[in-house]
Structure formats: structure tokens, C-alpha cells
């Protein structure tokens, strides 16, 4: 379960980027987070990744109180997450395969399991043939899918995806979103930030709108699938 309790957040001391956020997201939910550019969506994800710490209030994820997480526990906590970054964050010196495998190596998974798991996940996001390419040698949409593959590879309990379909054509975007839905159906909590209202309308579900650092609305829309 994810819980934001009276959360304020500011990068610099003067201006609040997030103001009095209160949210409760249960295990197994699929949630869209929408809102205009600069509203604070990525900042919410930064708090969830414990890249930043709430200025006020508490963020609690799966029993971890992120404001009180010790340095030693941060890696342990992060391994429970699958993150798709808005800016992909791929390691340029590693191939597509290595970028994905890396998330497993970090957690001490055996080489044999890595060799089994990584090709499977790359196939899932349609990147099998690109495994040996470097990030600079593939398109933006492909890089985005590498980021997605890395997020999925260690079977996380929670996936947070910042614009996972931002650079992808509509057909592929639908497929990717569908994949996230399938993963969600298998029990994983999924949070997706998107600007693509067509996708939101089509898939439906819980939609949280953030504006000016506040929760503007939190509704459930019907699926049109």
C-alpha cells in the first residue's frame, strides 16, 4: 500500500512543488496520474523512489516509511520497485541486454537466471532483436521500452512508470499499456503518469489529477475496452 500523509515538498526552500498531498493506493490497483506539465507528477515519483524526501508529512510504501529510511535500507527498498523514467536513464556504455540484466545483477541473481529472464522480458516489450545494441543506436521509443523492460525484469511489487508511452506511436502505446494492465492483473500495483488522455479514456480505472502541486481530482473511470 502507498500512503501520502499531508505531504509538502520543495526543491528549494521557497516554493512548494507539492502541497498537502493525501493519497491512499491499495495493493493491486492500477492508477493513472495526469496533469499539465510542471504540475508535480514526476516529483511525486521522485518521492516514491526516495530520490527526494518529503519536506513535510510522510510517504509510506509497502511498510517502508520513506522519511525514516536508513541509508542501508534504501537499496533494499528500491529493489522492490520497477521504475520507468521519463528520461529513460539508460547506461550508455552498456548494451540493451546489459541495461536490463543490470537491475538483476544488483540484486545478486544468478547468471543462469539472468540468461533466462532477460531475453524473455526483452521479447515481451518487442526488443529481442535489439539486445546487442547500445542506447545511442536505437530510437527514443525503443529506449523507452528498454527502460520499461528494466522496470519489469525483477518482478517488482510496485511499478511506477513516468510517461512510458511518451515517444511511441499510438498502436505500440496501446500494446505497452496493455502489457502494464496484464502485469497489474497478475497482482502488481501500477502507477502510470501520462499526457495521453485517449489511452486513459480507453483503459479507464482510477485517475488522479494533479494541478499546481495539489490533488485536483481522484476519480474512477469506466473502461472502454
Amino acid at each position: 500500500m502507498i500512503e501520502f500523509k499531508n505531504v509538502d515538498f520543495a526543491y528549494e526552500s521557497d516554493s512548494l512543488v507539492l502541497e498537502n498531498i493525501n493519497l491512499k493506493i491499495n495493493d493491486g490497483e492500477f492508477v493513472f496520474i495526469v496533469g499539465s506539465s510542471g504540475a508535480g507528477k514526476s516529483s511525486i515519483f521522485k518521492l516514491l523512489r526516495r530520490e527526494e524526501v518529503a519536506t513535510k508529512g510522510e510517504v509510506i510504501v509497502g511498510g517502508y516509511n520513506l522519511s525514516r529510511l536508513s541509508n542501508k535500507d534504501i537499496p533494499t527498498y528500491r529493489r522492490t520497485l520497477g521504475v520507468v523514467f521519463q528520461d529513460f536513464r539508460l547506461i550508455k556504455s552498456m548494451t540493451v541486454y546489459e541495461n536490463v540484466a543490470f537491475a538483476l545483477r544488483v540484486t545478486n541473481v544468478s547468471s543462469r537466471d539472468i540468461r533466462r529472464r532477460v531475453p524473455y522480458i526483452l521479447g515481451l516489450v518487442g526488443l529481442g532483436p535489439k539486445a546487442k545494441k547500445y542506447p545511442d543506436q536505437i530510437s527514443g521509443g525503443e529506449q523507452q521500452r528498454v527502460s520499461l523492460a528494466r522496470a519489469l525484469v525483477n518482478n517488482p511489487a510496485l511499478i511506477i512508470a513516468d510517461e512510458p508511452t511518451g515517444n511511441i506511436d499510438p498502436a505500440l502505446a496501446f500494446d505497452i499499456m496493455h502489457l502494464l494492465f496484464e502485469i497489474n492483473r497478475a497482482g502488481t500495483t501500477v502507477l502510470v503518469v501520462t499526457h495521453d488522455m485517449k489511452l486513459v479514456d480507453k483503459f479507464g480505472g482510477r485517475v488522479i489529477t494533479i494541478e499546481n502541486g495539489k490533488v485536483e481530482s481522484d476519480v474512477v473511470k469506466e473502461s472502454k475496452l
Binding site: P75, R79, V83, L90, F102, V106
Partner: peptide, 15 residues
């Protein structure tokens, strides 16, 4: 030059 790389490693939970 590998600062970003280190940052990414930490983000995916590397100790």
C-alpha cells in the same frame, strides 16, 4: 563521466 551511470545504478537498488 560516469556520474549518471552511478546515479542509475543507485536508482535500481545497487549497494
Amino acid at each position: 563521466a560516469r556520474k549518471l551511470e552511478i546515479n542509475i545504478m543507485k536508482q535500481v537498488g545497487a549497494r
